[in-house]
Design a protein around this nucleic acid. Structure first.
Lengths: 156, 156
DNA sequence: ATTACTGCAAAAGATTTGCACTAGG
DNA sequence: CCTAGTGCAAATCTTTTGCAGTAAT
């Protein structure tokens, strides 16, 4: 019964799903791994490895940055987390693959905004036909000026 | 008259266009800059800075890698070259912005294949409406398995 | 004549790696 | 138990920067 209660929380469901996935693949579920997974599921922003590390440090003072990287790599390999690499910045940002969404990056302040919908599957289909590639995933990065930066630029 | 002859060559035309653009912006046209521009226009692949440097070195033995980076940055800022950052690789690849095309990256061998067409402007439009961003550019990266790697994987 | 651009070397980041130790299954 | 995962530090790799000298306008 308690399980049903938790299953109503989509974040808890995602967390359980990830853990089940790892268990099935015989990938160990460690304290730090759980911490990174929970962090990613709850993150509304698109954190860098460094940010994750800093935010988790108070609760996991012995955790190392390398471990954060290791865990992110595992999650990426399992298709549970996506890696975003933007122009103008050689830091990778990470994104939990819950619901599908695209990213818009502000070229002025660097903020990343999500936006839902927009079906890119016809493009994938055409790409497959034109090139013979077997498409595994696609990433659309849109660059622009966020509303705040638009205002700021007008003032000048 | 000679000019008209050269204008019939689209690569020569692109080269002339870039030089005219730089001249108008009072950006100096140096030997190494011309070399990088010509290289990018003629590149059918998607070279890294290192690759450009290595390929130009025989003809420009005193050129430095930093200069390649500097010139690429200028060209990017002027919207003449695009920077591609892929997952699984923290190298940037560069692409001359001639005709519009999208990129498909093989997850197995890393090869980048271009593919033309595919209109993403409706997605840009929707992004603008949903988020209020003023869209400047978009980059669609498709990941998959190239035909060669598909064959190789089947054998195993 | 200016000053942007170059080449060099050093610095700065981000990420990866090697290794001894620890803990999950 | 056994070995994947951890924490640490050092290494690696890409890109950036400072600076004195050079060349484009």
């Amino acid at each position: 019964m308690a399980l049903h209660f938790y299953d109503n929380d989509p974040k808890q469901a995602a967390y359980n799903h990830v853990l089940a996935h790892l268990k099935e693949k015989h990938i160990r579920i460690t304290e730090t791994r759980k911490a990174v997974i929970a962090y990613m599921i709850n993150a509304h922003h698109h954190p860098s490895a460094e940010q994750i590390y800093r935010d988790l440090l108070p609760q996991y003072p012995s955790m190392s940055l390398a471990t954060v990287y290791n865990n992110l790599k595992v999650l990426i390999d399992e298709g549970l987390v996506a890696e975003l690499k933007l122009s103008n910045d050689n830091t990778a940002y990470f994104d939990f693959m819950g619901d599908e969404h695209l990213h818009i990056v502000c070229e002025s302040c660097g903020k990343i905004t999500d936006f839902v919908d927009a079906d890119i599957s016809p493009i994938k289909e055409e790409a497959k036909e034109q090139t013979g590639y077997e498409i595994t995933r696609a990433q659309l990065l849109i660059y622009g000026l966020c509303p705040e930066c638009q205002k700021r630029e007008k003032k000048t």
